[in-house]
Amino acid sequence: MEKNNKFTEFVANAVPYGTLSQGAQFPELTVPAGKIHEAAEALKNYEEQPFDYLVSLTAVDHLEKITMVYHLESTLTHTLIVLKADLEERDNAKIDTVSDLWITAEFHEREVFDLFGIHFNNHPDMRRLFLEDDYGFPLRKDFKDDVNIIEYSN
């Protein structure tokens, strides 16, 4: 962590509501869901190493909560950090879009909307990407497919 002292300082100043921890591979920054856009904007405009490249955007369904996971890279220093936000609500899952910061997020968010049913506020084109409109949200853990029944067999 010593190497990242400057970054720790930056996070303490710019994202005071976030908690920074050292994950197994990369630093992880967890923020409240309502503050995701603010935190993302701060990271993108970080002068030392702007995190201008969104590598991957996805969600993980932990049943008690859904976690949004953003992998960000700075093209200047090639450091990677993980940004996380927990969604408490399942039925009405909502989070702000970051597609105005990274355009690639627009399509990753459509994919997450399609497969997880998370609605992104202020998204320019919130349509499903792969599946039919009346299909469920297959990557949720409580998804039941009546046609193709697959179940754990261990």
Partner: peptide, 14 residues
């Protein structure tokens, strides 16, 4: 528990 594949063509297409 969950796997995400970040595929290059997905981003390249748009």
């Amino acid at each position: 528990y969950r796997i995400k594949f970040r595929s290059p063509n997905f981003s390249n297409l748009f």
